[in-house]
Design a binder for these strands. Structure first.
Length: 200
DNA sequence: CAGTGACA
DNA sequence: ACAG
């Protein structure tokens, strides 16, 4: 494992070995079975290209009313618990005692992207955000704490873990593109990103 | 502005 | 920079 430091983000390359990645993947599949993935509508009327679901007390959600955390899947059922292999990653890298109450699961197909944004729907920005990459490579872009200005990019690969904390907690970030088929972890290709957060 | 697309 |  090597650690990159980019604009305050801790990027742990190849943090999870293949066995650990498969264990987490199994857990994610179970989550998606209970809480099927969906493409949220943005508040300005266009659907997101990323498909998503969540685990934990809260799930991230978006529609015409805006971005927010909700207690239930669109179907009305509670989100499944965050699987323990995923909580173990948080315990190992977050540096805090409290556990996350949301695990957002993002599925990126070949043409999925995520525009530059801040994670700012949580109550307390002093808690870090932890991101886990599985499957195909994704081009991760890191900007500034305000819109505009120069950005830097890094390819995230399966097994990489990113910790966004401290001054970097409100840094703009996004995913510009997926290198479809670069990993064998997901038989059908695509990228999965897990985002662990303390919401309230 | 968690999107798109043009442009540099 | 744009429009929904």
């Amino acid at each position: 494992m090597t650690v990159l430091r980019l604009r305050g983000f801790d990027i742990r390359k190849q943090y999870l070995n293949t066995q650990a990645q498969n264990e987490v993947l199994q857990a994610v599949r179970a989550v998606a079975e209970t809480a099927p993935v969906f493409s949220p509508m943005t508040p300005y009327g266009k659907p997101m290209t990323v498909r998503m679901t969540s685990a934990g007390k809260y799930g991230w959600f978006s529609d015409a009313s805006g971005y927010r955390y909700v207690r239930t899947h669109p179907s009305g059922t509670a989100w499944p618990d965050i699987p323990s292999p995923i909580l173990d990653i948080w315990r190992a890298v977050s540096g805090v005692d409290r556990l996350p109450d949301c695990c957002l699961v993002n599925f990126y197909g070949e043409d999925a992207r995520m525009g530059l944004h801040q994670d700012r729907d949580e109550a307390d920005f002093s808690w870090p955000v932890v991101s886990v990459s599985l499957g195909d490579d994704g081009l991760f872009r890191i900007g500034n704490t305000t819109r505009g200005g120069k950005t830097e990019s890094v390819w995230l690969q399966s097994g990489d873990v990113v910790v966004m904390g401290g001054a970097a907690r409100l840094t703009y970030h996004g995913v510009d593109r997926i290198r479809f088929g670069t990993s064998t972890l997901l038989p059908k290709g695509g990228r999965i990103n897990l985002t662990l957060r303390v919401v309230d």
